[in-house]
């Protein structure tokens, strides 16, 4: 059972390893951590407190905190979607904190909402909804890959990540994003 303190410690250590900061507004931060704890109690994993989850791991995987969209949002907007993680300038109050637009692809969101509404529980109706879910699931399969996903390696320490953009900061050696190069795979022979 995760409590508020352990949720905070988990987020703090993750922020530190990635070069981010937690939201400096203490009461806002507490609300977010409470939301994460509540979602973990409900679903068994800490899905984003600001997004609708289904309780189906395959449909919620991308919004389990830290979500798949965090790095890109922190870089572009200074905060992730729920604003748990923020960039240094936002933490220091040098840049404003504004609502972050939803980056999660519409098809994934539609699949989650369809599921949450029970539309795919019945085999008869909701064929479009079922298709949404199937499509969203397909993107999850390893190797099937979501479009734009690439392998990146840290030129400083060799850390490798599979994602659309290189990490903001290398979680191992703290090298900056610019130190990442793309791994090109090809068949030799």
């Amino acid at each position: 059972m995760t409590n508020l303190d352990s949720a905070r410690r988990r987020a703090e250590s993750d922020a530190k390893s990635r070069g981010y900061f937690l939201n400096p507004d203490e009461s806002f931060l507490k609300d977010l951590l409470e939301g994460l704890v509540e979602n973990e109690r409900r679903y068994g994993y800490p899905s984003c407190p600001c997004r609708i989850a289904t309780g189906e791991f395959r449909l919620d995987r991308d919004i389990i905190c830290p979500c798949d969209y965090r790095d890109a949002d922190v870089e572009e907007y200074g905060a992730c979607y729920c604003a748990l993680y923020v960039r240094r300038d936002v933490f220091e109050g040098k840049a404003p904190l504004r609502p972050v637009p939803e980056r999660r692809p519409a098809k994934r969101q539609a699949a989650a909402v369809s599921y949450a509404s029970g539309a795919i529980a019945s085999e008869s109706g909701g064929s479009k909804d079922k298709a949404d879910v199937d499509k969203a699931e397909k993107g999850n399969a390893l190797g099937g890959g979501e479009p734009g996903m690439k392998l990146w390696y840290c030129k400083q320490c060799g850390y490798v990540a599979f994602r659309d953009e290189p990490p903001y900061v290398c979680p191992i050696c703290k090298a900056k994003k610019e130190m990442f190069g793309e791994v090109k795979l090809g068949l030799v022979g």
Binding site: G35, L36, E38, P49, C82, A83
Partner: peptide, 10 residues
């Protein structure tokens, strides 16, 4: 709103 969402609380 969502009951867990801090922006909604705000």
């Amino acid at each position: 709103a969502l009951s867990t969402c801090a922006w909604c609380k705000k």
